[in-house]
Nucleic acid binder design. Structure first.
Length: 260
DNA sequence: AGGTATGTTAATTG
DNA sequence: GCAATTAACATACC
């Protein structure tokens, strides 16, 4: 489920479970997930070392080792982290597992293997080289407005990682629903009030989602997320939720609350 | 059995 | 040049 809120939850999970423990062994089931790195070199870089610090940028989680280098994780569409006791069976689809000397391990779980894991010397240099925009939670309103000089459909614009990083298909739907904007409105046609609404909704939705552990069922009653299905009842107007295709994905919205 | 899926990216088309 | 669409990646689930 990894968009910005999900990855932030992973970050906090890793912080709470896997920091400051010596890595004893590294198991790699899916070498193809490693970017420009052999299984051997990953094992050599991790074994005997410790995770000391984490950082998130958009949908990426960066983990600093005691050596000062960083492990970069991206979770694709289905990745997650799982901390487990090594005398138990590892989680299903564990692709890279780091075992600690306390009898526990952290697994990078990815049923569809669409993510990637990289190794970089500097987190800052890496972020700059990635053509990633500012993290969506760190964008201020003036730069948000500057970036809004685009004729893209607003839904697609929100998910453009090079503009600001972290928003994906699901949360762009929620943000637009809270801002009461039709997903296909072109960004440069939005007036000042609408842009202000959008900016506010972006921050609110992301922080609320993190607050609720990115669990759809824990979201406020006014949220679209649990009703993201064609024909579902809109939580605001009780009308029917509709489906729309945009930027190669399926979006959901309420035609009544989000008129064109 | 077939359609769909929270992401990214390259290629193609308008 | 920009925006939109499609396919590909690998696999699970309904």
């Amino acid at each position: 489920m990894p968009e910005l809120p999900d990855v932030e939850v992973f970050k906090r999970y890793l912080d709470a479970t896997a920091l400051h423990k010596t890595i004893k062994h590294v198991d790699v089931e899916a070498p193809a997930l490693l970017e420009d790195m052999s299984v051997r070199s990953l094992q050599q870089r991790l074994t005997g070392h410790r995770f000391e610090n984490t950082r998130r940028h958009g949908k990426y989680l960066l983990v600093e080792l005691d050596s000062g280098s960083w492990l970069v994780m991206h979770f694709g569409m289905s990745g997650s982290l799982q901390y487990f006791k090594t005398d138990k069976a590892p989680p299903k689809y564990a692709q890279v597992t780091t075992e600690f000397d306390n009898g526990y391990a952290l697994a990078y779980v990815a049923p569809r293997k669409l993510g990637k894991i990289a190794w970089v010397e500097s987190a800052e240099d890496w972020v700059n080289k990635q053509e990633l925009g500012t993290d969506a939670l760190a964008v201020d309103e003036p730069s948000f407005r500057e970036l809004a000089q685009s004729r893209k459909a607003v839904k697609c614009w929100l998910t453009e990682q090079t503009l600001f990083a972290g928003i994906g298909n699901i949360y762009s739907d929620e943000i637009l629903f809270q801002a009461r904007l039709h997903p296909k409105r072109s960004v440069d046609e939005l007036d000042d009030g609408e842009l202000a609404r959008l900016f506010k909704a972006m921050k609110e939705v992301l922080t609320t989602a993190i607050d609720k552990q990115a669990d759809p069922d824990a979201m406020p009653k006014s949220y679209l997320l649990p009703h993201r299905k064609e024909g579902s009842q809109c939580p605001q107007c009780k009308g029917k939720v509709a489906k729309i295709s945009a930027c190669g994905r399926t979006g959901y919205y309420c035609p009544k609350c989000q008129p064109r």
